[in-house]
Design a protein around this nucleic acid. Structure first.
Length: 279
DNA sequence: AAACCGGGGAC
DNA sequence: GTCCCAGGTTT
């Protein structure tokens, strides 16, 4: 994969997001808010929070009720409480400075694998392995030639993606994430104007030529609950191991066949766009 | 691995 | 109702 193509695209097309020019605390607040929440909805709330609580200690002094209220309609309000809790720990144990060490970051409530790597990269310019949904989808398509990544990253995926990181790893993380968010999107990717079209494995593998092809693969990208139902059916009724199901994940023709069998046996139902278990 | 999170919003 | 969204934690 030609990293320069994405890096140059990023230079020309990146959005001017406020958390790209702020303090480590500002980055951390943005990462909490952006967990499962679109950028556009986060923007106004982030501005308000940084103006009101410019450092961890400021937030730590706030009441829970106020924290929840000011979370607005971002959703998953438990994130606000975890951020509040993390702020308290940072003020008390880290002299009010967001830690730059991956292990320290990971120990904070609400900071998982992704968020720790993202803060280290975007707040401290470290070359960490950042794998969010946008980056994973981009690599799944260009490198693996499939429309969607697996539900969660495997060890082999981590290793292969780590090998791609160029000298400026922080810029690489931001660039690939932005590319996945603006060009290689989940629903209607802008393949016509994509600078990676010539080397895209998904395109070489056939790309979505028709609705029927798309539908046969659609379940792979459906939500976790729906995937869980199908995986459970495949495992229990077809005596498949988890490993076998994972292998099928990347082979749409076998997935299609397996799904047809499940439907024929009445084990699952389809509405054309998704799947469910019969009552 | 799957459910759940004091979800929310576009469609 | 379905799907998406810069995920994390718990069982």
């Amino acid at each position: 994969m030609r990293q320069e193509i994405v890096l140059e695209w990023f230079d020309q097309n990146k959005r001017d997001l406020p958390w790209r020019r702020t303090t480590p605390w500002g980055v951390m607040v943005s990462e909490f808010m952006l967990q499962q929440t679109p950028v556009q909805r986060v923007l106004p709330v982030w501005e308000k929070w940084l103006a009101k609580w410019p450092t961890p200690r400021d937030l730590a002094k706030a009441k829970r009720s106020e924290v929840i209220t000011d979370w607005g309609r971002l959703g998953y309000p438990r994130r606000a409480l975890r951020l509040h809790e993390s702020a308290t720990i940072i003020a008390r144990d880290y002299k009010n400075a967001v830690p730059n060490d991956l292990t320290d970051l990971r120990s904070l409530p609400g900071v998982g694998e992704y968020t720790a790597a993202a803060i280290a990269a975007f707040a401290f310019n470290q070359s960490t392995l950042v794998l969010d949904v946008n980056i994973r989808r981009l690599f799944a398509r260009v490198i693996d030639g499939v429309e969607f990544p697996t539900p969660s990253p495997s060890q082999i995926e981590r290793r292969l993606r780590a090998e791609l990181i160029p000298a400026d790893g922080a810029k690489w993380a931001a660039a690939t994430m932005e590319f996945g968010a603006l060009v290689c999107t989940s629903k209607n990717p802008d393949c016509a104007d994509c600078p990676l079209k010539r080397q895209c494995g998904w395109r070489k593998a056939g790309y979505p030529k028709s609705e029927s092809v798309r539908n046969s693969q659609a379940w792979v990208g459906t939500d976790r609950q729906c995937r869980g139902v199908i995986v459970q059916a495949l495992r229990e009724e077809k005596k498949m191991t988890t490993r076998r199901v994972q292998e099928l994940w990347h082979d749409s023709s076998q997935v299609e066949q397996a799904l047809k069998t499940l439907i024929a046996d009445g084990l699952i139902e389809t509405t054309g766009k998704s799947f469910r278990l019969p009552n």
